[in-house]
Design a protein around this nucleic acid. Structure first.
Lengths: 132, 132
DNA sequence: CTTATATTAAACCCTATGGTTGAATATAGC
DNA sequence: GCTATATTCAACCATAGGGTTTAATATAAG
């Protein structure tokens, strides 16, 4: 049985409910960033951005490691997995009524997966042999 | 390209950030309920529960149809699908982390094997490159 | 040592949130 | 029509949220 820690889910969903924070997560998915780098694109004081980062950190979605006077933030996706796990239970309820958009998305996913599969087959070689 | 309506995601994630509301959704996933039925298990005034239901409704997670003096609420899962779709983008990052973990374990295994083979030979390898 | 940079802390301002209680509305049943 | 039931509305309260500005802290660089 899957156990959900509600304090964790509370914090994660709350963290995700703000568009600034979601944008920060997205930028972190591209690469690690310092606090000021993260703050830059938002029309907001550094202190304000710092608060958002702390919310993300408190929810376990971001980890920071301090290097001198700069704080480097990195995405930590595991808690997102928990949120998705919670949502997964509800799949059965929307799968019954897939609309066109969903169909299209799924088709795209399949296409991408297929493409990736082919590329793996022909394109990518193992980098290292694992010696036994 | 998947387009996310941030007002919608804001509302959905916010709605999900409260344990009472998540519990309500779960009960609705079992069957439709009237407002008072939904309110019953929570240690809370009816008006309080009613507010929660309105938050869920505003987020598009619950639909109600009024029948005489009773309001019957039903789960509407489509918006949950949107939330999950948003989260799906991040799957690659937690899967990647698992892959990394696997790599690390495998590397450790190799290191152990090596060590065992050569007994107590000297020389330490660089642990980890920080990737950009 | 002094100054500049990166970040947080503190104090404050509004507004939103989650909760309450008590009155209002609508409908059902007698 | 009168009364009981189902639900919301309105007013209120306390606290959390998102934002600001002005220190304060820590480290880097002259």
């Amino acid at each position: 049985m899957v156990e959900y820690s509600t304090p964790t889910l509370d914090a994660v969903f709350h963290a995700l409910s703000d568009p600034t924070r979601r944008a920060m997560l997205h930028r972190l998915s591209i690469s690690e960033r310092t606090v000021s780098e993260l703050a830059t694109p938002f029309n907001m004081s550094l202190a304000g951005a710092s608060k958002h980062i702390k919310v993300l950190e408190a929810a376990g979605l971001v980890r920071r490691h301090v290097q001198g006077r700069t704080h480097i933030c990195a995405l930590q996706a595991a808690r997102l997995a928990e949120a998705q796990e919670w949502l997964r239970y509800y799949e059965q309820f929307w799968e019954e009524r897939l609309d066109d958009l969903e169909d299209i998305l799924r088709a795209e996913d399949r296409a991408l997966a297929e493409k990736a599969k082919h590329e793996r087959r022909k394109g990518s070689k193992p980098k290292h042999e694992i010696k036994e």
